[in-house]
Amino acid sequence: MRIKQLSVFLENKTGRINEVAKILGKHGFNMHAFSMAETPDFGILRLIVSDADRAVEVLREENFAVMLTDVVCISCSNEAGALSSILEHLAEKEVFIEYMYAFAEGDKANVVIRANDIDRCVEVLQQCGCNIFDSL
């Protein structure tokens, strides 16, 4: 139920995201989702790729500071109020969300959630019948 997300530390420098994309592409990793968190001087690129463990090795070889973080990926219907009903359950059970990112297309919306307590997050999502990805 957990998905391994790659977190890459990046300086704010033109072309840095592309460096990562290029390396991953060259080694045949496909990106399923990513988001960029930024501060004035550095950023954290978070991505979900095919074979996260090997991708970490490849990026480390290229001198990137990378770590794996567990996240939960869910799919919900792409309609008004769908996300809110899920989040309400999480809040009720006091699961704190550190960050999330999402993309909707057609009748589905896919959401990546990083929670303070992943196990509890999964448990609550299962209880409310949410569609959780085993892998992407």
Binding site: Q5, F9, A37, T39, I44, R60, V66, M67, T69, R114
Partner: peptide, 12 residues
Amino acid sequence: RRNFFSDDIGSM
């Protein structure tokens, strides 16, 4: 240092 990098912006 690589092993002190964290996904959590707050701790960075």
